[in-house]
Amino acid sequence: MFRPIATQPDRPITIQFESQTIEASRDDTVAAALLRAGILQFRYATAQEPRGPFCMMGTCFDCLVEIDGKPNRQACQTIVRNGMVVRQQPAPVAATPDERAKP
């Protein structure tokens, strides 16, 4: 499990991940905040398998999450904002023609 090291700086920011409320520092990336909170599974990939951050530098695209309704945002490249709502990015399944997305 990831944990913080030694002294705790201020964590004045609160974000939401699914049903969890998470405290974060002002300059945390979303990925760092989620990992610190013990979350390892950020999304589901093409074969429905869970994935989490891998490179932490924006080149692997495995840390994708939905942020404030916007899909496929790189958690390691996004700085937290107070009140941010983060959700797991679902697998990129093309639904059947019956399931139409509302505009």
Binding site: P92, A94, A95, P97, R100, A101
Partner: peptide, 9 residues
């Protein structure tokens, strides 16, 4: 583009 749930035939 990225994938979207099916909305267009």
């Amino acid at each position: 583009t990225d994938r979207q749930p099916h909305f267009l035939d």
